[in-house]
Simulated scan of single mutants.
Amino acid sequence: MARYRQTFKDRAIARMLPPESASVEQVAAETGISPAALERWRACALHASARDPSGTGAARLDMLLAASGLDEHERLAWCFGHGIEPGALDHWRQLAAAALAADAEGMAFDGRHERDQRRIRELERELRRKEQALAEAATLLVLEGKPGLRREPDTG
């Protein structure tokens, strides 16, 4: 079984992926490699990029920033050089934008939540004060209604 360098495999895989999108048969005719081997290489490359070779979100952000100033051709070469599918950068950019939007909404929610909690505490405090006043009024009414405990009016 013949062994090929990774750079050779990467060039063949790059020909089969966008923007070139050459057919497997065309690349097989050009390179002399069987179509089955080329399809296996492409599947492995796509599977490896789907496993997230970039690791963490911070690594993705670093890659987005690194590729942001490149033109389309340089960007594609950079992606294949780093083992990233070109569409992954666009997907990561969308995810980052959605995360930032969700974070902004969450911050607004936190502010509303704090105001609501403060208002709840104020209302509970007012409710306790009114319950105490009601209990005192009920006690006074009960005391006025009992014959032996009735207050005598001051006749000064």
Rank of each mutant, 00 (worst) to 15 (best):
H82K: 02
R128V: 09
L100N: 06
E114M: 02
S54Y: 08
L123G: 07
R151W: 15
L134C: 04
P86D: 06
M107Q: 11
T31Q: 10
E144N: 14
G83A: 01
V27E: 09
M16Y: 10
V24F: 10
G145K: 01
T7Y: 10
T56D: 05
Q26E: 15
H47Y: 12
Y4Q: 08
I13H: 04
L17E: 04
R60A: 03
L143F: 07
A133L: 08
L143Y: 06
R42V: 11
S68D: 15
L123E: 02
L89C: 00
A45F: 11
H113Q: 12
L95A: 14
A28C: 10
G148W: 14
A97D: 09
D62I: 00
G83F: 08
D103V: 11
G87E: 02
G148C: 03
R11H: 07
A137V: 04
V142T: 12
D10C: 08
P35W: 12
P35T: 02
H47M: 07
R129Y: 00
L134F: 12
R115K: 06
G145D: 14
L65A: 03
A67C: 05
A2N: 10
G145T: 09
V24W: 11
E30D: 15
G55L: 07
G55D: 02
E114I: 12
R128D: 03
R112C: 07
A99W: 03
G81F: 00
W78G: 00
D154C: 08
R129S: 02
K130H: 07
R151T: 09
R93P: 08
A98G: 11
T139W: 12
A29G: 13
R75N: 10
C44F: 07
A14P: 01
G69I: 05
T31D: 12
A67Q: 10
R115E: 11
R40V: 08
L123A: 06
K146N: 10
A137S: 15
D110L: 15
P153D: 01
A67T: 00
T155Q: 01
P147F: 04
R11W: 15
P35R: 08
R125F: 08
L149S: 03
L149T: 03
R42A: 09
L76S: 01
G87I: 04
G106W: 14
A88L: 09
G145W: 07
R60H: 04
R150M: 01
G156Q: 13
P18F: 02
E124V: 06
A2P: 14
E126V: 05
E105P: 04
L65P: 01
S23C: 02
E85D: 12
R121C: 02
R121Q: 06
E105C: 13
M1A: 02
L38I: 04
A108I: 14
E126H: 05
D52R: 07
A138C: 11
H91K: 11
R60I: 10
G145S: 13
A104W: 09
E39T: 14
A22C: 07
P19Q: 00
K9L: 06
L38Y: 13
D62Y: 09
R42M: 13
Q6A: 05
